[in-house]
Nucleic acid binder design. Structure first.
Lengths: 237, 237
DNA sequence: CAAGCTGAAAGTGTCGACAATCGACGCCCA
DNA sequence: TGGGCGTCGATTGTCGACACTTTCAGCTTG
């Protein structure tokens, strides 16, 4: 009988939600590149490895499928999604739509706390660039953009951004280093933040367009080079 | 080496994917308003009604959850998502981002076939408005916007639009008639199509903004009136 | 008479099992 | 020798079962 004792601290022991945990682990494995595009995600193997049954694994896989991280092939199982150069380009087009609006909106309701957070994030990126830690830089880059989306005050938009970012990470996780010059990442973010602080919508849009345009071309080029003519693993669409 | 016999017709027999079918039925029930916001979706009941086991129902429910149609409450089950006025507003803000870009892009690559399809859709809406069939008008309205997104040539964007539209239909299905004057719907679409045909980006954005702005305010007002102070069914977040 | 407690019923979270299907290996035959 | 075909193992799709939790109606109690 759960008396639900006084609302003291709550260690919150692992709640029974196995599905979330499995989804999380699979997501991590994908964005970290441990599960490369095209890799098969066998239910039984995952279940064995985690010491659980197949049911939660299947449900988690469905979740990731509708998030675009996995692809379900009936009677054949789940595979890590393979992104063509065109699909990557489409994702960047969507990011552009979203982040333009987010940046303008973030500027409109900019608070000192948010401005400070953005500046700190930019400092962090500069610092990481000096130390040349590619994985951490990608993460910090993502966080900077996420902060802007968060500051726009639209929860649904933030969820969308997270989804788009996850999908892009399928390929970004593969690319060792995004830019030849790590320092350049921080530099290309500076005008975006400056424009947001200045609060001129046209300039914000222009700088977001330019920044994402650079990333779009850069990633597009790298993805193109990753897929010379065809991939290694083939299956029917 | 697959000789892949001569490319004769393609019967494409129906796949046995129960999960998709269940997801489809639940989606239909929700957007048609047969499952109102806050309604409980009991796995066992659905499984019994469809004559199948609970496993496919659970997986379908997960799918709809990540699409925003259902909300999962651990140990309590799935419920049809309830949208606050603010959430509806956020969805419209996202639609604005997406459809602005889609309309401009659709204009850039407008083909005679697409132009013809858009005109026919507009005619259909005018026709339905004269007959005063609210449900059909909402459907035709949705199709018009979808055609524009499709014409933009970005598959990922189309998927996003479908998702946003589904979520909005949770509430739109509740509202008997969206506009006092049905004829007005067709009229507010005309300048959008005209701007796309003319191909001036600024005018396209302006008209899309105006059209969606009207819908946003209208739906927002109706949603507000649907939720006077609190809802009937309450549960912990 | 209202509020809290108690027990049972219903429902969820997870598991193991079974049939159907897919892919691959090896065999047979031209 | 090379290609088509049957068989076998492995995996998926689905099911029924069980333990635990939540819910609710009825009873007890202040």
């Amino acid at each position: 009988m759960r008396a639900m004792s006084p609302p003291v601290g709550l260690p919150v022991l692992a709640e029974s939600d196995l599905v979330r945990q499995v989804a999380r682990r699979l997501t991590d494995a994908i964005v970290q590149g441990r599960l490369p595009p095209g890799a098969k995600v066998a239910e039984a193997a995952v279940a064995r490895e985690l010491g659980i049954s197949r049911a939660p694994v299947r449900e988690a896989a469905r979740l990731l499928e509708s998030q675009g991280l996995l692809r379900a092939s009936p009677r054949r199982g789940f595979f890590v999604r393979e992104l063509s150069a065109q699909e990557v380009d489409e994702l960047y087009a969507l990011r552009l739509c979203v982040e333009r609006h987010a940046a303008v909106e973030a500027a409109r309701r900019l608070t000192p706390a948010v401005r400070e957070a953005l500046r700190r994030q930019l400092d962090l990126m500069r610092d990481l660039a000096r130390r040349d830690d590619p994985a951490a830089i990608v993460e910090a880059d993502y966080q900077f953009h996420r902060l802007i989306c968060e500051a726009a005050g639209n929860a649904r938009m933030l969820r969308l951004f997270d989804g788009l970012a996850s999908e892009l990470r399928i390929v970004i996780g593969l690319i060792g280093r995004l830019y030849d010059d790590p320092q350049e990442i921080a530099r290309t973010h500076e005008p975006v933040l400056a424009a947001i602080e200045a609060g001129h919508p046209e300039r914000i849009v222009a700088h977001v367009d330019h920044h994402l345009g650079v990333a779009r071309r850069e990633v597009g080029r790298l993805v193109q080079s990753l897929t010379p003519t065809a991939r290694q693993t083939r299956e029917t669409p």
